[in-house]
């Protein structure tokens, strides 16, 4: 069974969401999903950019005004 982990980065500015996401994905197995909650617009750019570069599957969902969930499925 793959699991889904939420990472609350609301109220955190760059580069904290990216550093936390990098740390959190290390503890996951392939197929697990990491959901990074952010409300910092530049993290909407650098978190998905990093995850795609690492080869993971990435989806961005705008959940509210100025609030996003970056959904990352660990691929390797």
């Amino acid at each position: 069974m793959s699991k889904e982990v939420m990472l609350d980065c609301l109220g955190e500015a760059c580069p904290v969401p990216l550093v936390k996401a990098e740390g959190a994905i290390k503890d996951l197995e392939v197929g697990d999903v990491l959901v990074v909650q952010i409300d910092h617009s530049c993290a909407v750019k650098n978190v998905p950019e990093w995850a795609r570069k690492e080869g993971h599957f990435v989806d961005i969902e705008e959940v509210d005004d100025g609030e996003w969930e970056i959904i990352i499925e660990k691929a390797k």
Binding site: G11, E12, H40, D65, G66, E67
Partner: peptide
């Protein structure tokens, strides 16, 4: 449409 007052964590 991305204005938000952020919380101090």
């Amino acid at each position: 449409s991305q204005f938000k007052i952020k919380k101090i964590k």
